[in-house]
Computed example of a mutant assay.
Amino acid sequence: MDEPYDYLEELEDFLGGTFHQDISSPDKALDEFINEASIECLLSTIENCEKFLNSNLTKQEKEIIIQNNAEVYFSAIELNPLQWLNNLVVKMKEGVNIK
């Protein structure tokens, strides 16, 4: 994979490893990730998410990547995948400030 797209692999690992089929809810999974991750890990994850959100991929491509890597029922949480990922970034930034 080209170096500029390393963030994509990291993002996919984060989404798949955190939001898998065995979680009780996306919110609880994120809270657990924030509580267990180091500040460095959180900052790196935030950076990868922001690179992805600001990338030249189309909105549809971004949503497909998120949906393919996170076991989240977006209609149930009443957010589209991009809104959801933006919310994750905000919550992770809050988590960094608390730590």
Rank of each mutant, 00 (worst) to 15 (best):
S38P: 00
I23Y: 00
F19S: 00
L11P: 11
W84K: 08
K59D: 10
I66N: 03
Y73G: 03
S25P: 11
E94W: 04
L11Y: 09
N80H: 14
T58H: 12
G17L: 05
D2A: 11
N35H: 09
E94T: 07
L88T: 06
N35K: 14
I46G: 08
V96C: 10
Q83I: 04
T58L: 07
N86T: 06
E12R: 15
P81H: 12
D31C: 05
N69A: 03
E10R: 15
E63K: 08
S55C: 14
L42T: 12
Q83P: 02
K51L: 13
I64R: 13
E94K: 12
N54M: 03
K59L: 13
E36I: 00
W84N: 05
K99W: 01
V72I: 15
D22W: 05
N68M: 09
D27K: 15
N68R: 12
S55K: 08
K59A: 11
E47C: 05
A76G: 02
L79T: 01
N87C: 04
Q21S: 14
A29K: 03
E3C: 01
Y73Q: 13
N56D: 15
Q60I: 13
G17F: 10
L43D: 09
D27Y: 15
Q83S: 09
L30Q: 07
D6V: 12
V89K: 03
C49A: 11
G95V: 12
G95K: 08
N68K: 11
K28I: 11
V90A: 11
Q83N: 06
T58S: 15
N54Q: 03
S38V: 00
I46E: 11
D6Y: 09
P26F: 05
Y5R: 04
T45H: 04
Q67Y: 01
K93L: 05
T18G: 05
E94H: 04
Y7K: 02
I39N: 12
N69E: 02
E36G: 02
K62A: 06
W84I: 04
S25Y: 10
E78T: 11
F33G: 04
N80I: 14
T58K: 14
I98D: 13
W84L: 05
I77K: 06
L57K: 07
S24P: 02
L43G: 02
G95Y: 08
S75D: 01
E50N: 06
S38E: 05
C49L: 10
G16E: 06
Q83L: 07
L42E: 11
I77H: 03
F33P: 01
K28L: 14
L30T: 11
C41A: 15
W84P: 03
A70G: 04
A37K: 02
L82S: 03
I65W: 01
E40I: 14
I34P: 12
E9Q: 14
G17H: 06
K91H: 03
N80F: 12
A70Q: 02
C41G: 04
E40V: 14
W84F: 15
E40C: 09
S38M: 06
T58A: 08
M1V: 01
E40Q: 10
N97A: 09
M92H: 04
I65R: 07
L88E: 07
N48A: 15
N87V: 01
V89N: 00
Q60F: 09
L15E: 06
N86R: 07
E3D: 09
E71G: 00
